[in-house]
Simulated assay, not measured.
Amino acid sequence: MIRRRRLRVNETIRALVRETSIQISDLIYPMFVVEGENQKNPVESMPGIYQYSIDRLGEELERVNIRGIKSILIFGIPEHKDEVGSQAYNENGIVQKAIRFIKKKYPDFVVVADICLCEYTSHGHCGLIKDGVILNDETLPLLADAAVSCAKAGADIIAPSDMMDGHIHAIRTALDEHGFLHTPIMAYSAKYSSGYYSPFRDAAHSAPAFGDRKTYQMDYANVKEAIREVKDDIEEGADIVMVKPALAYLDVIKSVALETDYPIAAYNVSGEYAMVKAAALNGWIDEKKIVMENLIAMKRAGAKIIITYHALDVAGWISNN
């Protein structure tokens, strides 16, 4: 008789033969930075997550450092928004200031700069608008300017999340022309138009003022389209590709992993985080078990990098174990 249970008899043996694991180095922790002073604003729909002004950002960075996390993703909430999202590419914008602060305080941190206009436009869309239509080509130079301004501030990785066609080529060209040949691009390649983003839009104040983003973000019914998007981004110069969201898109992560050997990032998004937190706070689930099972599923599907709001907790659990 074949007895496969011999390799399951205790935790030490199970660990010896375990196929998939989570390391602290796999994690990127997203953070929200807001204008003003002495600001630590709770995001009500994301328990445990806050918006920080730069003068208080050090508190969270210290926790990140203690937990051993070395990679963070920065989102900015500007004081003023306009039709063209000018604060996204202002060299003294909130994200640019935050990047300089972080790199001065923790120079060994890898700072990932999200590049998009939605947090900075008065209409909340990811590109310029004319007569209710998102202008793809006209938006590309602004995204390129935003990327260059963040690279100048010290960003280690540029992460365009806007889903404009041709944006990776435009950004790669601009970075190279400004001497940032060695700055990688982590492309939000397969970013779906998803209901899982609502808590993030609370945190980043980025909900669209009209309509939705279905004309530029992907239809969640499609997988083959995701492969085309990934291949396009790689051809245009992406160094890392992303699938967003993660949990409902494990099949997409797997499909992408079968098509490319480029590193894949999975974004464990705000709605996924909020659902787990709500259930845990109500005592319905064991938070640690569920979170680790979810993240292992992402790794098992083929992700190398996991962007998650659970990162601080996960790093603590890994260290304690």
Results as ranks from 00 to 15, higher is better:
R228E: 01
A170K: 00
G271R: 04
V243H: 01
S122G: 03
C150M: 12
L57H: 06
V110C: 13
P30N: 09
Q23V: 07
N65D: 09
E293Y: 06
S206M: 06
Y29V: 12
L135T: 11
N294L: 10
N90V: 08
A279P: 00
K277E: 15
E229L: 02
I240A: 05
E59F: 04
A303W: 13
G283A: 03
V33P: 06
K191C: 02
A159C: 06
C126M: 04
P42R: 03
A301G: 05
P107H: 09
K277Y: 05
D313M: 14
N92V: 05
H167K: 08
K244R: 11
Q51L: 10
I296Q: 05
E229C: 00
K130G: 04
Q217Y: 10
D313E: 15
I227G: 02
F75V: 11
D131Y: 12
G85Q: 02
D176A: 10
S270R: 02
D233M: 00
N282F: 03
M164R: 02
Y262D: 07
R228S: 00
L57W: 09
P245D: 01
G124Q: 03
D26W: 07
G48L: 09
Y188P: 03
A226Q: 00
T183I: 11
L73M: 15
A279K: 08
L128A: 00
E236Y: 06
A248G: 14
Y309S: 05
Y309T: 08
I54Q: 07
G195I: 10
P245V: 00
I28D: 15
I22R: 07
Q39Y: 07
D26S: 11
A226H: 02
I49K: 03
D145C: 06
G36V: 00
E79T: 06
K81F: 05
A257G: 15
V9C: 05
E62C: 08
K304W: 04
A238P: 03
N268L: 07
D219E: 02
N10F: 02
A246E: 08
G132I: 00
D219R: 00
G154A: 04
A266P: 15
K299Y: 09
P47F: 09
Y262P: 04
E62Q: 13
S122Y: 00
G154S: 01
A248N: 14
A209S: 14
L57E: 11
A113N: 12
N136T: 08
L27M: 15
I115S: 08
A274L: 03
P30D: 12
P208V: 02
D145Y: 04
